[in-house]
Design a protein around this nucleic acid. Sequence first.
RNA 1: GGAGGGGUGGGAGAGUGGCUAAUUCCAGCAGACUGUAAAUCUGCCCGCUUCGGCGUACGGUGGUUCGAAUCCACCCCCCUCCA
Length: 374
Amino acid sequence: MTQFSFTLDATDGAARTGTIHTPRGDIKTPAFMPVGTAGTVKAMFPEDVRATGADIILGNTYHLMLRPGAERVASLGGLHKFMNWQSPILTDSGGYQVMSLSSLRKLTEEGVSFASHIDGSRHMLTPERSIEIQCLLGADIQMQLDECPAIPIEHAKAAASMRLSLRWAERSKRAFEEKSKPGQALFGIVQGANFEDLRRESLSRLMEIGFPGYSIGGLAVGEGRAEMFRVLDFTTPHMDRAKPRYLMGVGKPGDIVGAVARGVDMFDCVLPTRAGRHGQAWTPEGAINITNARFAEDGEPLDPASSCPASRDYSKAYLHHLFKAGEYLGAMLLTWHNLHYYQQLMAGLRAAIKAGRLAEFVADFRAKTCEETL
RNA sequence: GGAGGGGUGGGAGAGUGGCUAAUUCCAGCAGACUGUAAAUCUGCCCGCUUCGGCGUACGGUGGUUCGAAUCCACCCCCCUCCA
């Protein structure tokens, strides 16, 4: 059986391109992972997600534990079979919900107790239970439970939070060693808000514990792009060269381009799917809102040269109409288009790194989209 | 011809003397969304504006009143029923 491993194929400055090998298939990096929180990449068929170029998608421990329940998914053959996605799946631990559902949870050393956002019932998520659930789901790449605090945050609070996440990292690893199957991987998560000393402490302690990959958590939580890049600048250079680096929850295309240039290998974000459902489309020239009146009579598709049917075969006027009429197909097509755009961006980044032309690629991206990536 | 009901901002529809440039919904215009409580949320939506206001406004005209979308008179129009 293929073990989990990472091979680095080429570098260009700090940027890298490589391959993550898993028993369920390879993941080309830099990789973008569409988010499928509740066992579905919303508004998409799994085969279409695959066809956009996605090697791996995300699932979520918290959501699936509440509904339909991890044990039920396990008894039905695991998440891959349940949702008809045979490629790798990465699951978040529920750590993000510690922040996003902060009004519904209680945090202790032991773990997080949630009042379900669905029915109010109480659920305890400990590092051990989070790993158990991720194993029941059958996730190929699993995340330690962590606390993801928003920025700005005081140094003392960020330090205490980061150290709690470190203790949870150790507990997660012990539980993972007990419950996981060969070929699965557990990533540790670097925290420490936007403080260099805390990020360094978090990273070096995680590397002592030892993980097959490292996530950078707690970014894109209110600090802004420039500050996020500043944190990456003093974090990625100290990360293990031989292990994949995953910037969690990021981001906009410009965020991804800038982070790849700083040595990040993996990304996930709800933006292409959520914004797609909300009428926003990314094009090579930047983001547009298809509901704008100026598209009402625009007979051109989003990208006539695209290999994606959603981008190529439907006019902006038609997409505009679908959104104005509240038709489901509008959300489906824009989600499809956005995911394809993101995957094309990743493919472009990989090719540029391999060719040693990342700087040109970034300059071209900036010129076309007017997005800041430095 | 008679009896009743009704005419409010693009539409629907609240409001029956000052707290009303007028609740709310829809339509319209724009913005946001970053490990998904999101097919969601926010703002604008009579005209002008130096964004503090100013001017007009609740079918029409005239009146009562310090003050009227709200009360009175007449006129116009619409709906229902009876002839």
